[in-house]
Nucleic acid binder design. Structure first.
Length: 879
DNA sequence: CGATCCCGCCACATT
DNA sequence: AATGTGGCGGGATCG
């Protein structure tokens, strides 16, 4: 019989034949009649595992064992169905055995039959690789488990890995949403970017020297990538988690490990990663010392992940023979280049490029996000059920944030962020729904990437200068450390970061955000990420399903993506979300032409949100864990900075230049901002903007510090606590024009001396790097050339308060629409801190039209300059 | 005997 | 408290 089936099956294709198989299988069983057609129909029931079914089975069947066999058969069958030809062979064996020797064989169905890889194939065979966007397939874990005849635990293993690649997302308890591979390339791109940031050097290192490294590895690692690893953080964090809340743990492993593992491949030149190296790298924290047991456990997990990835056709097992001998390894056989601008990516990535910046950005955002669990939560809610990791559980409903704290750590860990982001994006997209959400929306996701930029610089600064107080929470720390990318630190002076993005976060309830996009373009170009984004966007749009689900997204954020259209929707969305919310949103964009089409406006918007997520991902790898710990961070960041610097202190220049040029062309990108609500203040509000015009920047650079601001956020007064901030970045100090412009554009600097005051806020975008700034007025001495300001970061004290959430983003092009600032803005400042802040805030307003700003470069410039001045004056006073 | 990795206990999270 | 999740590692199999 088996043979039979087999033959048939083989031809068949994939998709879902299982049922049939099952029936057949059953048939096989001695007990059963051989083949019972009828059963086919029933199939589901037949599954042994279902409780009820099982009972029946048991009863009816004399031996349970038998059943098992059956099950097994089933399992393999599906596999056969699936495409894998390879498998078939195995299957055949099994089949043969079964049929012939029922019992014997059955008894020992061989482990292979039960392997996770096989199971995964079966699982995958049930769903289309590229489902129509319209339909969303929901996966019931129980159902699948019973159908496949395995315990639910095993399904979790599979789903967790798939989730890390965004092939599925968790919608609700026991329910996952099947997305298929539409977004796979985007995800991979993201991971690649993130991976480069985090592991780029390492991998290179290993690859070259690999083996030796083993023991050395630890050292190296530290040296090389200390930042990312953040061992300390990890360590701490872990403990914390455990003790404190444990929540984080979950996030940790499989999902994250899976992403990291994939990153290693993507970053690896040879595309071959040995298990031991991967294990070492993935063991976060202090690996050196890693216990053998820990190592062993890690390897075990990697096998689990590898099995799933193998089933996905992304990797295959190989052996690497080194001097020492032969080591198990896996080779990446999936796509290497991702659509979109891969080129650039790759090119850059190598070393210097912007990548670092990206990371940083990512990290930062990430962290930020991470910090606030709340945010996540919200997001989630907002997203709707999306599966973002962070949110996951919450997905269904609540936006609350009860546990956020723990999340912090967690969040940081989260690599998943990225995924999340996407999802969010997707959702957002959908939401917009307007027309067709999917497509339309640009994927904000992409943008996300961009987003990242931020702030690292800020953080560092903060820490340095101000460390303390403010950040009590982890949050702050997280923010800080995120590693930012080093950029910030960069003491060198350069920040490399591109800037771009702005973003923001906010806390609390009200909040909002935004981001700016502009940079995106820049960023994108600069960063790979960006690129990705763009691509993704596209893809995503298409691909993305509507996903999501359930909730509409109501997130705060809106991603706007889409350009124009979106705006409204976004707003609506927000509104919807919370009615209360004040936000308003957003805006944006003007478009400038988009300069880059690629960049697409939409992306910008999205980006914000995504960014966070994205960042997270990125960050995570690097220092996700670390984030938790504040203290450490600084160090890390520094290191990172170094790193980044190394990569390209200037490096980016080329890219930057381009960018700048582009910018030039463009008037600007958009930025956006926004916000506020009503009432205000209480909540927060705000927003901002954008970006930068390059020109403006440039100008500024010239003398004034320029500012570009990307974004800002504000907290509400209420929150006194609020904290927040962020920032941007900045500057490039010295860089020549291009840089300057570049940076300028992107970054903004603000100083916020005020921050101290309570309020704070903000954000920044770009990267900057100022090394440390003092909190106060800091100016940066460093930056003589540019006058930029930095911001001091502030931290928010209350981490908790903050949330990030919704970002709205706008695409580049935005025009601002409106800012509501007027009212709100002013307030904020007031409440917060008068002077500086106000100035800061006001500036825009005062300037007049924000719009104008955005609109034209020229205007911007002017504005900027004026603004800057103010800032400087008021806040900073550097000189 | 080392490489794999299934299995399922059990802690933690979510309902 | 019940149920969902998923870390984790013993120890069985494979090669």
């Amino acid at each position: 019989e088996n043979i039979f089936d087999r033959s048939r099956m083989a031809p068949k294709t994939p998709i879902k034949n299982e049922p049939v198989d099952l029936s057949k299988q059953k048939g096989c069983t001695p007990e059963r009649n051989p083949i019972t057609p009828v059963k086919l129909i029933d199939r589901p029931q037949p599954d042994p595992w279902t409780p009820t079914a099982n009972l029946k089975m048991l009863v009816s069947a004399a031996s349970p064992d038998m059943r098992d066999r059956e099950k097994k058969k089933e399992l393999f069958r599906p596999i056969e169905n699936s495409e894998q030809s390879d498998t078939p062979a195995l299957l055949q064996y099994d089949m043969v055995d079964d049929s012939t020797v029922d019992e014997f064989e059955k008894q020992r169905p061989s482990r292979k039959q039960k392997s996770l890889g096989l199971l995964c194939q079966k699982f995958l065979a049930r769903y289309p690789s590229y489902p129509l966007s319209t339909e969303k397939t929901t996966i019931s874990l129980d159902e699948v488990a019973s159908i496949l005849g395995v315990e639910r635990r095993r399904i979790y293993d599979i789903v967790n890995v798939l989730e890390s690649l965004h092939l599925v997302s968790r919608v609700a308890k026991n329910q996952y949403c099947w997305h298929g591979r539409h977004n796979l390339s985007q995800t991979l791109k993201m991971l690649q970017e993130a991976g480069e940031l985090q592991y780029g050097e390492l991998m290179t290192f290993f690859q070259h020297k690999e083996q030796d490294l083993e023991y050395k590895f630890g050292e190296r690692k530290k040296e090389t990538i200390p930042d990312s690893q953040d061992r300390p953080l990890l360590e701490f964090s872990e403990p914390d988690c455990t003790s404190a809340s444990a929540n984080s743990r979950k996030d940790k492993s499989l999902r994250i490990m899976s992403q990291k593992f994939v990153m290693l491949f993507l970053v690896s030149k040879t595309k071959i990663v040995t298990l031991d190296i991967a294990a070492k790298i993935l063991i976060e924290g202090t690996q050196d010392t890693v216990d053998h047991s820990k190592f062993k456990t890690k390897v075990r997990r990697l096998y689990d992940i590898a099995n799933v990835l193998t089933s996905l056709g992304l990797i295959k097992k190989v052996h690497v023979t080194e001097e020492r001998g032969r080591k198990p390894a896996f080779k990446w056989i999936g796509p290497v280049e991702f659509p979109g601008k891969t080129d650039e990516l790759r090119g850059r990535s190598p070393t210097s490029d912007p990548v670092p910046g990206t990371q940083r950005r990512a990290c930062a955002p990430y962290q930020i996000c991470a910090t606030g669990k709340q945010r996540f939560t919200r997001h989630a809610s907002f997203n709707g059920a999306q599966p973002c990791e962070g949110t996951r559980r919450k997905v269904s409903s609540e936006p609350n944030s009860p546990r956020q704290e723990r999340q912090d750590e967690y969040s940081s860990k989260m690599i998943n962020l990225a995924a999340v982001c996407r999802q969010k994006i997707e959702e957002d997209t959908r939401n917009p729904g307007i027309t067709s959400p999917l497509s339309l929306l640009p994927l904000p996701g992409d943008s996300d990437f961009c987003v990242n930029p931020l702030p690292q610089a800020v953080f560092p600064v903060v820490q340095a200068d101000v460390p303390s107080p403010s950040l009590p929470n982890g949050i702050s720390s997280q923010a800080l450390h995120p590693s930012m990318p080093a950029a910030s630190k960069t003491e060198n002076g350069k920040p490399t970061l591109p800037p771009n993005q702005s973003f923001l976060c906010f806390p609390s309830s009200s909040l909002f955000m935004l981001c700016g996009g502009l940079q995106e373009n820049n960023l994108r170009e600069t960063l790979p990420t960006t690129e990705d984004v763009g691509n993704r966007r596209t893809e995503a749009q298409a691909a993305v399903p509507p996903a999501t689900c359930q909730k509409r997204s109501s997130h705060k954020c809106a991603s706007p993506s889409a350009p124009v259209d979106d705006e409204e929707p976004a707003a609506k969305k927000q509104t919807m979300e919370q009615s209360d919310v004040p936000l308003s949103l957003v805006v944006p964009k003007k478009p400038f032409e988009s300069l880059k089409a690629e960049s697409t406006p939409g992306s910008g918007c999205t980006s914000a949100v995504h960014l966070e997520a994205f960042h997270l991902d990125l960050a995570s790898p690097a220092a996700p864990e670390a984030a938790d710990k504040e203290s450490t961070k600084p160090l890390d960041s520094q290191e990172q900075e170094k790193w980044s610097q190394n990569k390209d202190p200037d490096g980016p220049s080329p890219g930057k230049e381009n960018i700048s040029k582009e910018n030039a062309n463009q008037p600007f990108l958009p930025q956006y901002l926004y916000v506020q609500p009503t009432a205000g203040l209480s909540s927060f509000n705000f927003l901002f903007s954008a970006n930068q015009a390059p020109g403006a920047i440039s100008l500024a650079a010239s003398q004034l510090p320029s500012l570009s601001v990307p974004c800002v956020m504000v907290p509400s007064a209420a929150l006194a606590s609020l904290p927040l901030f962020c920032s941007p970045t900045i500057t490039s100090p010295l860089s020549p024009v291009p840089d300057g412009s570049f940076s300028a554009a992107t970054s903004m600097n603000f100083s916020v001396s005020g921050l101290a005051s309570t309020t704070p806020v903000f954000i920044g975008t770009t990267a900057v790097v100022t090394p440390k700034v003092s909190p106060a007025p800091s100016v940066d001495p460093q930056q003589p050339a540019h006058p930029t300001l930095h911001l001091s970061p502030v931290l928010a004290r209350s981490c908790s308060a903050v949330k990030l959430d919704s970002p709205m983003c706008v695409g580049h092009p935005v025009t601002l629409l409106k800012l509501q600032q007027p009212s709100s803005t002013p307030l904020t400042p007031k409440s917060i801190r008068p002077a500086h802040h106000e100035a800061f805030f006001k500036t825009p307003g005062s300037l007049g039209d924000p719009v104008a700003w955005k609109k034209n470069e020229g205007n911007q410039t002017r504005n900027a300059s004026s603004v800057q001045r103010r800032l400087e004056i008021s806040s900073t006073s550097p000189d």
